[in-house]
Design a protein around this nucleic acid. Structure first.
Lengths: 254, 254
DNA sequence: CTTATTAAG
DNA sequence: CTTATTAAG
């Protein structure tokens, strides 16, 4: 089966930019969207019921901000919006769905770009969600955590590591927060499969960055080790337009 | 000499839409702009000193809202922003300049479209400014008052009079406020010269109204009677694009 | 519908 | 630079 994760930076803008025809072409079994930036009452009928999919949309309180959605060909066994911490959940950042052979966590991690208080919030979010994942794993669940982590982990994960050591997205403390996920047993599948590849998943809209490939790898599939035997491929779909992020894909033998 | 008045609905948008080349082509001696929607610190050098003109810009307190500007080839003898009533003056709606043979009042009258309290404000503004003009006339000044009056005076002044009797812009009480100016001796020069012409100066951006000429005459040159002998022509420049209003022109033998 | 704004990214 | 918002017109 094929999973895709994509920060669409506004589902309505993505729709203007060809989202539906892309979805028809790619046809993933599960699609995780981040930064949908839409409230339930603003959803079009097609968003509510995309042809061939079950859809769950989770919005934050603030209009036009954050939000995630999970689309799946098979109806999820169960689902949860947020993870039980109001100060994070009100921002509409996580959606948990249970599928035949794993549990999926679709996550839009906070951006730390507007002041250090948001960096602290982001790191708290990283740690709180990791603790929640610990509970799920203790209960025997196999986990796929995907989405926009808003952090490049290593120098290979962004075009300009040196220049960005003091920029949110590549701060030491953010990288360490992500390291704690890996130390806890989560595997960054793309990097595992392609140890030396320099490919990015986000480019600023400024300075013609995407054409020049001055980007960052901010989007990941993190898997618990028990799922690794089922991994067939993990790829970055760098040609797909319609957002400042591109989608990433995971193929599982399930 | 040639005077032009134009509600540009955002000078920056007008500049994007060819304002400077229009100005060079038309070359009025005096240009009155309304709804400039710009703060002093946002003016470009060219706006600050348009080639061949002296320029005065008067902004309201609120960013992106209201504002007027008067450009003149000859430096005005004197000038005044507002007319001494803070509750009107803070909105940046009037600019008085004194020229060789008349005093010019460039006015952006309030729009009454957002609730009846703004209709009342608009009517108060009409009356307060008329009283101020009375003072100027008592002091012997010959007056040209021009700008966006935000009111169509008679049924001939809008495409759909019947349908708009309860719409701000053609409310009986607004039309009466404008009538008080005419009763006080101001002359609507365009209508004086063209008693039966149906031409408009504003069209909503919606419904393709301009292409269908579903418009309103909202912009006027009002003159004190002592200036009438010097009037050569008054016209509506309906072909000029770049705003939801078109400019209006007055030719004087001065 | 369009302009300009403000908040975010 | 781009998305979405809100206030105005």
């Amino acid at each position: 089966m094929r999973l895709v994760s994509w920060n669409v930076n506004g589902i309505r803008a993505a729709v203007r930019n060809g989202f539906w025809s892309w979805l028809e072409d790619d046809g993933p079994d599960i699609l995780c969207l981040q930064e949908t930036r839409i409230q339930p009452e603003q959803l079009t009928p097609k968003m509510h019921k995309p042809p061939g999919y079950h859809a769950l949309w989770h919005a934050g309180e603030r209009r036009g901000y954050s939000g995630v959605a999970t689309l799946s060909r098979e109806r999820p066994g169960s689902a949860r919006e947020g993870f039980g911490q109001p100060r994070f959940d009100v921002e509409g950042r996580t959606l948990l769905t249970r599928h035949r052979s794993f549990t999926l966590l679709n996550v839009y991690f906070p951006n730390g770009g507007r002041g250090y208080e948001r960096v602290l919030f982001k790191i708290d979010f990283y740690d709180a969600l990791l603790a929640y994942c610990g509970q799920l794993r203790s209960a025997g669940e196999r986990l796929v955590v995907c989405g926009d982590f808003n952090t490049s982990h290593q120098p290979i994960d962004l075009a300009r590591p040196k220049e960005n050591e003091k920029t949110s997205g590549f701060l030491p403390e953010e990288r360490e927060a992500l390291s704690r996920w890996l130390d806890a047993g989560f595997v960054d599948v793309y990097r595992q499969l392609h140890p030396d590849k320099r490919e990015y998943t986000w480019w600023t809209y400024r300075f013609d960055a995407r054409a020049r490939d001055i980007g960052w790898r901010l989007d990941y599939f993190l898997l618990t080790e028990d799922l690794l035997p089922d991994v067939r491929d993990a790829r970055i779909l760098g040609d797909v337009q319609g957002s400042d992020h591109c989608p990433i894909a995971l193929e599982l033998d399930l």
